[in-house]
Amino acid sequence: MTSPRPIELVCPAGSLPALKTAIDHGADCVYLGFKDATNARNFSGLNFDDKAMAEGIRYAHDRGRKVLLALNTYPQTDNWQRWTGAVDRAATFGIDAVILADPGLMAYARKTHPDLRLHLSVQGSATSYDAINFYYEHFGISRAVLPRVLSLAQVEQVIANTPVEIEVFGFGGLCVMVEGRCALSAYATGESPNCDGACSPGKHVRWEQTPKGMETRLNGILIDRFADGERAGYPTLCKGRFEVGDETYYAIEEPTSLNTLELLPELARIGVRAIKIEGRQRSPAYVAQVTQVWRAAIDRVLAGGQPFRIEQAWMAELNKVSEGQSHTLGAYYRPWK
């Protein structure tokens, strides 16, 4: 058996403290965004202004780590300059790679900053090697982040047929829909991940205690209702309970997190080059816990030798910070589909 190739641990940084925490706990890379709709976590109180960006990059680079910038929403005609301006700023700051979804923006980045490393965002919805190779041939992308839809065998097939490095999601909030192919939030609220960098945005959320229980609404649409003693979750619209036929249930997805820790040796074997941790909207404490566990697990896999063993404490730590305190293998596990 050949020894596994190095895998980078890519951790979320919604703020400067989260960035430092991720670096201190063993992230190889952090990814972050500017304070606007140019990234898919456009939430108030999150993300980086120029000063924090400069300090964050310095902190990471001083320790030999990388900083990736998510510019992964789709610019419109009237706001195009904001996105190209963000690419220019990224290049000036010395960002290690920009994570893009829009082909026009990729063409701009390639032409204007030929040395800037490009990653294809999960929002690009590229699920096959033909799709990924399209971006490689036209824009010279170095890495692609896969949507959370493929089985392990399918990921392996992609890797075998592209020169592009493949990054997959390892842990965190689970989009049950193909990223970049979901307009549910736009339908309910007028704001979408694709164009506004937001899903089920907070300003449309209403919590209301009623005689029937705690109700959560998104732009007036009832997403769920919780009995006394039930833990009321945030009304992400695909994770509510709905009526289909005679049943009321989580018709689309339960509130749960993706956790692929047990697949790590397989991911390494098939040549996955980076594991992404979701959660730029989460606290530095979350970043610390998750980064620490994944660092230890990746180091154990990379050390090779004895069969990979998952510490029970790792899973316990991860479950503590999982949405709904539960986790799933998502599309890697066929029955999930």
Partner: peptide, 20 residues
């Protein structure tokens, strides 16, 4: 409106069936 696509089949899920 075709709003979203998933690896999961929601029709199969409704019937407690697996997609395959």
């Amino acid at each position: 409106l075709p709003l979203a696509y998933s690896a999961r089949c929601f029709t199969a899920r409704h019937y407690n069936l697996q997609k395959d």
